[in-house]
Each structure stands twice: as structure tokens, then as C-alpha cells.
Design a binder for these strands. Structure first.
Lengths: 199, 199
DNA sequence: CCTATTACGCAACATGAGTTTCGTATTACT
DNA sequence: AGTAATACGAAACTCATGTTGCGTAATAGG
């Protein structure tokens, strides 16, 4: 079952990803130089390109490691569950945003990854797959709350989650503001309670 | 009052922006080559760099021209006004998204601009300024509706607009889906009416 | 008219991403 | 043991961005 030729040195992947992560954390996305990673890792540039076709792909691999697996919890209280889930997503975003020391700047690494997704089909697909997984989890959570009568029967679950997740991304990417638990709570309250005067 | 030295050839700006727009529309963001723009425009590369410090800045200048000035209309019906405004924003996003012919792909030009904003402080500031202007308009619109009793008194206007605009951006950038009037209506309905079962 | 100032074009250059070529090393299969 | 297949390393290469230096053109002010 093992492939024919010489097997890949698996230690290389480990070492390269660690060094690349350090470079991004230290100098930001732009400071991630293929030549420098290769030199510090003690491998040839061709060895890197055999694993990651572009610098963007390497960066995505680095960030993917930092992302927790965002498991969802269903306590039966939809408000608390949504806030928890948003906070998990926000934590991942903040971890990217602050990588590279450009605290107050703009979107930071998160923004560059959106650019990478726009440049490369496959990275875009990856991002969309991750979104789809999140979306499925969230929609199921919302649907359960709807069935037990916590939420309106004629709810638009997709629109609801787009609003919540979208506002998080919007704030981080466009406005560059931080997102914390307090903001997540504001979002959930606003979305759940609506804005019309109650008749 | 005129500056001391030789004045800039203003025709150059016009010509370059037109050519750059054509290149982006034809081959996408990556297909925008400084050398090629310079050649087609019949100017030296240094002349381009005197006006736009990087390729990203040139691209931003091109796209900025395509953006309508998003004036807001206040008819007194907050639901219709919000849908209209979202549709205007979405139209701008779609115009960027489809530039370059990569219809179904990912975020397209819009995503690359987020990357540009992440790479360059000043572009990020520009984007945030535009956001701030939009935000101010929308918040004023919402506030007027609140004061005339159309919306709840304890409304969180900022959260409301973040949700609406955020969902639009989220959908275009991350999921790559199109945004049309129908989607804008779903968003506004969901946000205004809320998700809780009405007590 | 003369000078300081700025714009323009041209060519050379520096840098980093990504590719290509080739010789060598490591593995599976026969 | 021999062979095909794959990985690795090293060096040279291509290409586009962005920079630098210099000669020349255009403008305002003295």
C-alpha cells in the first residue's frame, strides 16, 4: 500500500510550518519569505514548492493549524448557544487579526487570506467548505431551537446566521475593530429581538 | 498659486485609469500589469509610480471610479429604505465581483481589495472612511425611523446595520454567492422582525 | 533672460516568487 | 541484485514589482 518511490520527510512539514508561523507572527504576512523559510528550515526551495504550490498556500496551511475545530454546544438556550458559537468564531478571527503585531492596523492576516482566496480557486473552495460546515452546524442548532418553540416558526435561519457571522467578519475585515463577547451579545440580542416596535 | 515646476499631464491619469480598468475587466486583478499599462498608455513606468505608489493603489483608484456615491433616500418607510440602500451597496459589490469574468469563482476583485487594504495602511484607512460615511448615513436613517416610532426605542442601531451590511459582504466574499434584491429583502425582514416567538 | 523646481522618459538595477534541469538518495517491486 | 518511481538539493533561470540615476522638458518667479 505504500507508494513506490522515496517517501517524503514528514519532519519537513512540521518544521516548515513552525518556522513560517513564527515569521508571520513576527513580520506579518508580507514578511513570510519562501527563501528565508527554506534557509531556516535547512531545505531547498523546491522541497517547499513540492508541498505548497504558492506562498499563499503555505500561509493558509499555517493559519489552518491555528484554527480550533469550532465544535458547537447545544444547551437548550439558543441565545447563550449562539453567543458561545460567535465567540468561538471571533476568537479565531482575532487570533489571525493580531498575528504580525499590527494590532490597530487593518484586517491583518485575515484580510490577506481573503485576498488569497480571491487569487486561488482552491483556497477559495477551502474557505467555502469551512463556511459550509459552520453553516450546517449553526442551521441545525437554530432549527432545533425553532422546533422546541424557542424561535418563530416562520424563521429564516439562513438569513439569521448570515447576519450574525457576517457582522463579525464585517467588523474585523472592513472596520478593523475588535470583536469581543460583549459585541457578540449585542449582535445576538439585536437579531433575536428584532427592531420593530412590538405590536 | 500654481505650483512651481512643470505641471502634471492630467490626460495621463485619465488614460491610465481607462486602460487599467479594461485590463482588470478582461483578465482580472492579477492580469493588471504595470508594465503593460505603461506601454499601452505610452508613458514610462516611473510616471505611473509617481501617481500610484503600488499596483494595489492603482487598482483601488480604478475601482473607486466605478463606485456610485450611494446616496440614501428616506421615504419614511424604513423597511423599503433599508432594502434600497442594501441593494445599492450590493450593486457595487456585484460590479466588482464580476469584474474579470470569473463569474462563479470566489470573491474576485472585491476579495483582492480586502487583501490590498490589509497590505497597505492607507488603503485600509480609505476603506474604513468609506465605511464610516455609509455607516453615518444608515445610522441617521435608522435613528429617524426610531424617533417617529417605526422602530423600537431601545434599538441597537449599530448592531442592526452591521448585521445587514455584514451579511452582504459575508455572502459575497466568503461564500461567493450573488446578492440580489430578494436576498436584501430577506435580510431586512429577518433583522426587523427578529427571531423570537412573539410573546 | 536666468534659475529653481517639478515632471517625464529611459535604462539599469534590486528583490522575491515560481520554474527548470540535473545529479543523487531512498523506497517498493521483481 | 536490478529497476522503476519518487523525493531531495543545488544552481541557473524567468518574470513582474518597485527603485534609482540621469538627461531633458515645462513652468513660475526674479
Amino acid at each position: 500500500m505504500a507508494p513506490r518511490g522515496r517517501p517524503r520527510d514528514t519532519q519537513v512539514d512540521e518544521r516548515v510550518l513552525r518556522i513560517a508561523a513564527a515569521l508571520i507572527a513576527e513580520r506579518g504576512y508580507t514578511g513570510l519569505s519562501i527563501d528565508e523559510v527554506a534557509e531556516q528550515a535547512g531545505v531547498a526551495k523546491t522541497t517547499l514548492y513540492r508541498r505548497w504550490p504558492t506562498r499563499d498556500h503555505l500561509a493558509v496551511a499555517v493559519v489552518a493549524r491555528l484554527q480550533a475545530d469550532d465544535e458547537i454546544t447545544d444547551t437548550g438556550d439558543i441565545r447563550a448557544d449562539l453567543v458561545d458559537y460567535l465567540e468561538k468564531i471571533a476568537a479565531g478571527l482575532n487570533r489571525m487579526r493580531t498575528a504580525g503585531g499590527r494590532e490597530g492596523a487593518s484586517a491583518g492576516v485575515a484580510g490577506e487570506l481573503v485576498g488569497a482566496a480571491a487569487r486561488h480557486e482552491d483556497i477559495g473552495r477551502l474557505a467555502r467548505d469551512q463556511y459550509a460546515r459552520r453553516n450546517a452546524l449553526a442551521l441545525a442548532l437554530i432549527e432545533r431551537a425553532r422546533l422546541r418553540g424557542e424561535l418563530r416558526a416562520d424563521l429564516d435561519a439562513e438569513a439569521l446566521f448570515d447576519q450574525l457571522a457576517g457582522a463579525l467578519y464585517y467588523r474585523v475585515m472592513i472596520t478593523g475593530a475588535a470583536v469581543d463577547r460583549a459585541y457578540a451579545e449585542r449582535l445576538v440580542s439585536s437579531a433575536l429581538e428584532g427592531s420593530l416596535t412590538c405590536p
